[in-house]
Amino acid sequence: MAGHRVLLVAAVVIASVVLPAGAAHADVPAGACALPATGAHLTEGVPTPAGSAPSHGTVRTTMVFVDFPDAPATDTPASLRDNLLPGGPNWFSASSYGNLNLSVKAVTTRFHRMPRPSTDYGWRRGLTAEAHARYLNDALTAVGRTVSFSGTQVFYVVPTRAATEISFSPAYINPLTAPDGSTIPRSVTFGQDMWYWGSKVLNHETGHALGLPDLYGYQGDSHRFVGGWDVMGLISGPGPDLLAWHKWKLNWLRYDQIGCVSRTGRYTDTLVPVSTPGGRKAVVIRTGPTTALVAEARARTGLDATACATGVLIYAVDAATPSGSGPVVVKDSRPNSGGCDGHELNDAPFTTGSRFHDPTSNTTIDVTTRSGNDHRIVIAFGTSP
């Protein structure tokens, strides 16, 4: 049902257009700006392919706590829970404008002892999908029938802090079968990095369960693609709210909140920051079969309250590029500036009086005026500005 709902909304969103000054409403064909899903891992296509956890309404999750023969717990399940809750669910409520309620059943009565030492699960060797599945299935076996998994859509496994071998927090996007026979569509295992990232690691990894890709790079400069402009990139970034593209992909934006440019011409629009409810959130410029440029406003409000720069964030999206290889690339208005708050791209937004030009698609975006946190832009697509 969730997949059908997203599909229907997307079909409406792509019919929304930005009006050229003085022009009539354009007749945009269906599919003009929603990039199609591809075979790329965690594709940025709209809508998200079926099988992901639902992104609307109440998502039911179960959280259990484990320790190991070689790493018995010296802490309490409640202390681990409190590092993730209620911060994670509250973050999703704010980012989704109240559309997503992440309900977490945290079983804090005791630690469940894993059958193997923590060193046997492969984290030090890079953690294969097979090793990850074995870890999750061992956790389910350890829990047994003491917990009901009926209706669980995401399964969380949190290890004692004493298990230093379980170093990082990956998501598992294949289904599992619980001891009570329930099918669990998606899972997340937490590691020692939860103590560095805090509750936002839950948002990043649950983002994968919802169908979102990694926006950091698996090789080279990890954060060269988006810096700190989306929690799916640099988790601790100063502007971590999800990109408007992701909010559209997750069906958190109404059809009239996305503008679409797919024909040669000159267009104007006013962007309202993604971190505040209501208003036009982005303009999407279709540049190819699987590619688009997106412009959105970012401000020091809501989840972006600590942003070290504001303005119009412009980025390229490619639905054929897999997770971890740059499916989203932010355009830097101040290249080689050194950035702010720890990364070159954190000061990337374009401000009043600045211009972005993409010679490949012959697209120019001018940021003309600002009113409060709203920004007016003029787009020339396939024509002179």
Rank of each mutant, 00 (worst) to 15 (best):
W245R: 13
G181Y: 00
L215M: 06
N362V: 06
L345P: 08
F190R: 12
E296W: 00
C260E: 02
W248F: 03
I235N: 06
A348P: 08
F356G: 05
A2R: 14
S16G: 14
W248A: 09
H41D: 13
T164D: 01
L80P: 08
S262M: 05
A23S: 15
T38R: 11
L293E: 00
A316G: 12
N203S: 14
P29I: 07
L8I: 10
N137M: 13
V274K: 13
P327E: 04
I365H: 01
V294C: 04
T38Y: 01
G220M: 10
V157W: 00
E205K: 13
C308Y: 01
A380Y: 00
S236E: 10
A244D: 02
K331E: 05
H41R: 15
T369N: 13
V272Y: 03
C260K: 03
D180H: 06
T119Q: 11
V272C: 06
S150P: 11
Y267A: 08
G181T: 11
T189Y: 01
D256A: 12
M232A: 06
A299I: 03
P89G: 12
S148V: 06
N137K: 15
D221G: 09
R125M: 11
T141H: 13
R376T: 15
L136A: 07
T74L: 14
G39L: 12
L303T: 13
G181K: 13
A78W: 04
R60F: 03
I285H: 01
E44K: 14
I377Q: 05
T160S: 06
A131F: 05
I365W: 00
T306S: 13
I258C: 04
P36M: 07
D366T: 12
P170L: 04
Y216W: 09
V18E: 11
L242T: 09
G31K: 10
P238Q: 11
N174Q: 15
A32Y: 01
G3I: 08
F350M: 07
I377W: 01
D304R: 14
G191F: 00
L100Y: 00
K200C: 02
A129H: 08
L234G: 04
V17L: 07
V283I: 13
